[in-house]
Nucleic acid binder design. Structure first.
Length: 581
RNA sequence: GCACCCAUAGCUCAGCUGGAUAGAGCGCUGCCCUCCGAAGGCAGAGGUCGCAGGUUCGAAUCCUGCUGGGUGCGCCA
């Protein structure tokens, strides 16, 4: 149920009727006709721009079209009034019964209220986190993980078939560095002093890997040359790191459907096949790149390389896919990995990267465009920095090398739900301030608390009504006569509820889960406003002593609000609270 | 030098993918409440939407050029 699309359909019906009766020319393009909530509530319940959009193609004045359309619309029982305003807007007022049907729908459908078939079952692959398996996840990864997970949930709610995927960068030089770092810890637990050379990972989390290595291999590698242990230690340490990362993700409530390994692409011919596919399109050649202008690296010299002609697909320069020693650059397995995703039949790909990978966007899109013949869109969301604060002061956990604020630290300090919600209060490409104290504050300035508090208030009021003897299950509440809900504050809340299905589609279309968090704050604000009206005006309180019918209607509205809050929080991956403690 | 992202109230930010008089919270000013329908309420002041052009009936939103900030720019991923 989406009231806005219902009314838009009505508007389109009326316009077509006008084409039939000759008041509009036939064959007009109606795609830009919109029905939206007005910015100013004084303008009515909904507004349509139909007359202004069609004035020019129809060769008629906007007001003429608007008047004729208003007459047609007014014949529908749902339309209370249709008034022409401003440059040609048609402001619609809807019958209260239309709004009153909204909480009823929410009660009947439960948290499925707002689900959409926008995606029509299209298969979407969302790749996110993809942190190098060289250490625990830190705050930066956390935001990417939350955004990716919430986006996945949002898309599923909007009718897409979603696969969540983690790409393990276990094929490059950094896992060799991990192996050498772990090896030093392995020596350390044997009583030898470790040599954590410049460039190795100094983190103490590798000590337990060293211990595990000792338990597994004893002294076997202690005096062995690197060639003998490197591969074994690398695989061993990588497995340990991935286990740790999976546990971190689990603590955040994130579950992946697929863990894809970079290493697994080597030696299978997958990389070669992907490159061959590009080669077949004439997009692979031997050439020499120009040095970057303005900032030429010290050691730059012209060099012939194997290049991908990414400029054909919108990139700024062509990109190397082989190093001078003939081995693949990091870009090559990435091309193969995306080719792999395309080959698995996804209709759309989404990658979530850290903002420092911004320079990588065009070449990746170019590769996907070439490999899918332009058929599979790739959207890349860049996640900006999280700045940590404590009591308004910039926060650093420790200055010792190798330690940083980890995902675990954050979750242990403020909890999974708060972490997730706060990470979704800003759009992904804006930096986010995260204050350990403010996010736990119990006041209306804190959106997490504000939304949770609204839900808790509903639960509280339902308990009171139940004590009074009112049936408070959703099925019973859906039967209540909601015609008594006609106060402006009540209607405002119903209007906000009616926006939910529309918001889901807008957020899903733009791949912006943060909009859900923003909407929930607005919905909570409407709910609290109505609640506060009850302070001054007892007739607006949800529980009306001795009046079961009115109480049932009012708590039906309250419960419907809680249902939508639950549905929204579920998309964010946050548990609603039944009471505040 | 080039590319991408950002720029909205004193502060932190929303802003419906082009709509009407640009919103919220904090802070500020005034009034109300001292209440477990608790963890405040109501009202008010405050903005050339970085600048300049353009497209459009209509622009914070789209295009172009500037300014300022961030990120990145061939053998690191």
């Amino acid at each position: 149920m989406n009231l806005f699309s219902d009314i838009r359909a009505l508007v389109l019906d009326c316009l077509q009727a006008m084409e039939v009766d000759g008041s509009l020319p036939a064959g007009l393009d109606l795609a830009n006709v919109a029905v939206e909530p007005p910015r100013d509530a004084a303008h009515g319940d909904m507004a349509t721009n139909a007359a202004m959009v069609l004035a020019k193609p129809a060769g008629r004045k906007p007001r003429e079209i608007a008047d004729a359309l208003a007459a047609k619309l007014a014949a529908d029982a749902r339309i209370l009034s249709a008034e022409v305003a401003g440059p040609g807007f048609l402001n619609l007022r809807l019958a209260p019964s239309v709004w009153q049907a909204v909480p009823r729908a929410a009660l009947r459908l439960g948290t499925a209220f707002g689900r959409s078939d926008l995606g029509q079952g299209q298969r979407v692959n969302v790749e996110f986190v993809s942190a190098n398996p060289t250490g625990p996840m830190h705050v930066g990864h956390t935001r990417g993980a939350v955004v990716g997970d919430a986006l996945s949930k949002l898309l599923a709610f909007a009718g897409y078939d979603v696969t969540r995927e983690y790409y393990i960068n276990d094929g490059g030089a950094q896992v060799d560095v991990l192996a050498r770092s772990a090896y030093e810890r392995y020596r350390e637990v044997h009583g030898l002093s470790p040599e954590i050379a410049e460039g190795l990972y100094p983190g103490e989390y590798l000590i337990e890997v060293g211990e595990a290595l000792k338990a597994e291999f004893g002294q076997r590698f202690l005096n062995a040359p690197e060639a003998e242990w490197l591969e074994i230690v690398r695989d061993f340490a990588t497995d340990r790191m991935m286990a740790m990362i999976r546990a971190d993700l689990a603590a955040l409530g994130v579950e992946m459907d697929v863990y894809a390994s970079e290493k697994a692409l080597y030696g299978t011919g997958e990389i070669e096949a992907a490159i061959a596919r590009l080669d077949a399109q004439g997009l692979i050649y031997q050439g020499v790149l120009e040095p970057p202008k303005g900032k030429t690296p010290e050691d730059w010299e012209p060099r012939e390389q194997t290049l991908f002609r990414s400029t054909v697909h919108g990139d700024d320069v062509d990109r190397p896919i082989r190093k001078s020693d003939g081995s693949w650059t990091y870009f090559a397995p990435d091309i193969a990995y995306h080719y792999n995703k395309i080959s698995r039949g996804f209709d759309m790909l989404i990658d979530i990267f850290g903002a420092d990978h911004g320079g990588y966007v065009k070449r990746m899109k170019a590769a996907v465009s070439a490999l899918s013949a332009g058929q599979v869109p790739l959207d890349i969301k860049l996640i900006q920095l999280v700045k940590l604060y404590k009591n308004g002061e910039p926060f650093k956990m420790s200055k010792r090398a190798g330690t940083f604020v980890t995902l675990r630290d954050v979750v242990e300090m403020v909890g999974t739900d708060v972490t997730r919600f706060v990470m979704l209060t800003r759009k992904n490409d804006a930096t986010l301030d995260f204050d350990f104290d403010k996010v736990l504050e119990q006041s209306k300035d804190n959106p997490v608390f504000y939304v949770q508090y609204a839900h808790a208030r509903v639960c509280s009021v339902l308990r009171k009504a139940a004590d009074m003897g009112v049936a408070t299950d959703d099925a019973a509440l859906a039967q209540a006569d909601l015609a008594v809900l006609d106060d402006p504050a009540e209607l405002a809340l119903m209007r906000k509820l009616a926006e939910w299905p529309r918001l889901v589609e807008i957020a899903a279309r733009s791949h912006e889960p943060h909009r859900v968090a923003g909407y929930l704050s607005e919905l909570a604000a409407e709910f609290h406003a109505l609640w506060n009206r009850g302070n001054d005006n007892p007739a607006l309180r949800f529980v009306q002593e001795g009046d079961h019918a009115t109480t049932a209607a009012k708590i039906a509205l309250a419960r419907a609000s809680a249902v939508v809050i639950s549905a929204g929080l579920a998309i964010l991956g946050v548990e609603p609270m039944d009471e505040m403690r």
